[in-house]
């Protein structure tokens, strides 16, 4: 199977799922860079600013066209790995649930750190940090749960 040149809808579905996971990880990196930029000074802040711009351009100029290409490669919008009964549909739900639980837990922990942390962080930085955390947890869960068959628990 070639990632960029799938020979069937089934292989295009696999590629599309991997691309979505990678795109989510990249979006997480962009948000993480935004958070780090707040605390970085001088040249580092400029570099992080450029990195966010490059990441945004990569999402718009590479990921979205690739997504569209894979989705429509076999006509219409038939390629859909997220269908309810597909393996990737199950992985998506598990990864989303994991990300939701992790973010909820993270926010609960944060509420106990109000004087230590929350009073020193702006609302914008906090939201960016939580978004980055959610996207990272989602993409890591997605790749762990969706790894190649071998050992590991069943996905239901």
């Amino acid at each position: 199977m070639s990632f960029l040149n799938p020979s069937s809808r089934a292989e295009a579905s696999d590629s599309l799922a991997i691309l979505t996971g990678a795109g989510t990880a990249l979006a997480g990196l962009i948000y993480a860079a935004k958070v780090v930029e707040v605390y970085a000074g001088g040249a580092m802040a400029t570099w992080l600013d450029n990195a966010q711009l490059a990441g945004g351009i990569a999402v718009l100029a590479v990921f979205l066209p690739l997504f569209y290409y894979l989705k429509t490669r076999f006509g219409g919008t038939a390629v859909n790995p997220w269908k309810g009964d597909d393996f990737f549909g199950a992985v998506l739900r598990r990864a989303a649930m994991t990300a939701f639980c992790a973010v909820m837990l993270g926010m609960i922990v944060l509420t106990t750190l109000d004087t230590l942390l929350l009073s020193r962080v702006s609302a914008e930085t906090l939201v960016d940090g939580l978004i980055a955390f959610a996207l990272f947890v989602f993409s890591v869960s997605f790749f762990v749960l969706g790894r190649s068959p071998g050992d590991g628990g069943a996905v239901e």
Binding site: M1, A10, S13, D14, P81, D86, F87
Partner: peptide, 8 residues
């Protein structure tokens, strides 16, 4: 379905 569905 996706190929991965069959393999898993």
């Amino acid at each position: 379905v996706s190929r991965k569905t069959i393999s898993t």
